[in-house]
Each structure stands twice: as structure tokens, then as C-alpha cells.
């Protein structure tokens, strides 16, 4: 690859990420929504649950922890989950399909364009997490000083996985009406059948089937990788599962937008 080519790719990459960030800044409701959701869980749900649920000492924790501390990584995962799905929701909008066309008529390779767009979404989700972590700290929840830094690689990987999953969904789902189903059949199962709200050993007590479902859920591993990263530690299994799922989803997403498959749409909407 020549220097000029690298320059071209770099310019395009910057442009794509900058656009995602600009769009995010201009949509204040989206930012508020992204913050209010996890904060309601933290301030209301976790506060109420605190008395009901005791948590044994499990890694990466070294002492007993209040429920609010346990739930923070799960809520970070939730922010990224919603951000990934929201990205795909906006892609399904007709107008968005329009801007998708502009993206895909760039002369650069399609896989590169899609990955750049994916990373743009991840950058936005990291900004949301940063704001959330700031509030968490102000609320008085104790996290290691370096947590906002050590968590970054996990956020990047988890965001990529969920963004790629959103892209796969966006390329398969034809109509917006079907998208309500995504909430019921994708977001809720991913979130509730994971270690976001309760540790897996609790699930095991509830029944082996639930435990299996939770253990197979890639979102569980996303949350665990974030949990360990917050404490400056690495959960190898979780990391491997997240990386593997990311590759799988990304490959499916690129395939979903290949010209042979008609950009994930059948006949052009106007059929003219």
C-alpha cells in the first residue's frame, strides 16, 4: 500500500467517525436517553434490590460489595447494547438507507467502509459510557482510580461486537415495523439472560437451563470482560468469546451489505 493510499483511507476513516460523533452531539435527546436508562436502573432498581440480594465474593471483587457496585458493568454493557441497536435502527430508516448509499458509493472497499462506520458508533458509545462513569463516581460508587482507562479495550471490543450484531440485524430486517421485535427478541433476552443483573452462580441455583443460556450469551461475556477490565484484570474466556463473536457478526454484516445480496434490500423501494 502506498503512502497516498494510506492517506486516502485515513481521511475517509476520520470523516466517517467525525460524522457519527457530530450526529450524536446534534441529537441531545439521544444522549439523554442513553444516560437516563442506566441511571434509572442504578438509582431505583439497584437501590431497591440492595437489601434483597447479597453477593458472595467472586472475582474480580476482593471484598463484599453492595449491589450498586455489582450492577455498574452490566449497565455499561446496556449502554453499548442500546447504542449498537440504535445504530442499526437508524440504518433501517429509509432516510438512513439513503445515507448508507452515499457511504457505499465511496470508491473505497465496502468492508473498510462498514468497519469504519462501526467504529464510529463505538466511539459514540464510549462517550456515553464516559458520561455515565462520571455520574457513577459523583454518586459515590467506588471504582479503581484507573478504571476509566483500563476499561477502554473492553469497551472497544464489546462495542464492536454489539455494533456488528446491530448491522447484521439491520441488513436482515426489511421493515421498521419488524424492528419493535428486535427489542423483544434481541435486546431483552440478551440483557436479562446475562450476568448484567445477577451473577451466574445465582442463575445456576435457579436452574441449569437458565445457567446454560446465560453462559452461552455473548453479552454475558461482554459484561464480564468490562467487569474485569474495570479492576485492571483480564478474563481470558470472556475476551475470547467476545472477540470470536465480533469476527462472526462482522463477517455476516459485510456479507449482508454485499452487492450480490442487494445491499440488504430487495427490489428498490420505488421499484421505478
Amino acid at each position: 500500500m502506498t503512502g497516498r493510499q494510506l492517506n486516502v483511507w485515513g481521511t475517509a476513516f476520520q470523516g466517517i467517525v467525525a460524522r457519527e460523533v457530530l450526529r450524536f452531539i446534534h441529537q441531545r435527546e439521544r444522549f439523554l436517553g442513553a444516560l437516563v436508562r442506566p441511571l434509572v436502573w442504578l438509582f431505583v432498581f439497584a437501590a431497591g434490590f440492595r437489601a434483597a440480594l447479597g453477593i458472595a465474593i467472586i472475582p474480580p471483587y476482593e471484598t463484599y460489595i453492595p449491589y450498586e457496585v455489582y450492577i455498574v458493568p452490566g449497565l455499561i454493557g446496556m449502554i453499548q447494547l442500546f447504542n449498537g441497536m440504535q445504530g442499526s435502527l437508524s440504518m433501517v430508516y429509509d432516510r438512513e438507507m439513503g445515507s448508507m448509499r452515499i457511504l457505499l458509493t465511496s470508491p473505497l472497499p465496502r468492508a473498510f467502509l462498514l468497519v469504519a462506520r462501526l467504529l464510529g458508533g463505538v466511539v459514540v458509545s464510549i462517550l456515553q459510557v464516559a458520561a455515565f462513569l462520571l455520574i457513577v463516581r459523583l454518586y459515590g460508587i467506588d471504582l479503581p482510580v484507573w478504571a476509566p482507562l483500563t476499561v477502554l479495550p473492553a469497551l472497544l471490543l464489546n462495542g464492536l461486537m454489539l455494533g456488528a450484531l446491530g448491522m447484521v440485524l439491520a441488513s436482515t430486517i426489511r421493515q421498521l415495523e419488524n424492528f419493535a421485535g428486535v427489542m423483544n427478541f434481541v435486546v431483552f433476552p440478551l440483557f436479562f439472560l446475562s450476568s448484567a443483573l445477577y451473577p451466574l452462580y445465582r442463575m445456576e441455583e435457579a436452574g441449569p437451563l437458565l445457567w446454560w443460556l446465560c453462559s452461552l450469551n455473548p453479552f454475558t461475556h461482554g459484561v464480564e470482560s468490562i467487569r474485569f477490565a474495570l479492576y485492571g484484570r483480564v478474563d481470558g474466556l470472556a475476551l475470547a468469546v467476545v472477540a470470536g463473536s465480533t469476527l462472526l457478526f462482522a463477517a455476516l454484516a459485510v456479507r449482508g451489505y454485499s452487492p450480490a445480496r442487494g445491499m440488504g434490500s430487495r427490489a428498490p423501494s420505488a421499484a421505478g
Binding site: 476520520q14 432516510r95 473505497l108
Partner: peptide, 24 residues
């Protein structure tokens, strides 16, 4: 394209710069 493809919430300049970047 027949359907509008500009980002309504971005400025004219931001829209055009984005496109220019896509072409390197």
C-alpha cells in the same frame, strides 16, 4: 439519488466535508 441523502441535523458544510472525506 431520488430519496434525500443529506444529514438534516448537520450543516451544509459538514455534509459536504463528510462526502469529500469518503472520497479521500
Amino acid at each position: 439519488f431520488q430519496q434525500p441523502t443529506l444529514d438534516l441535523d448537520l450543516t451544509v458544510l459538514q455534509n459536504l466535508r463528510y462526502f469529500a472525506a469518503l472520497h479521500g
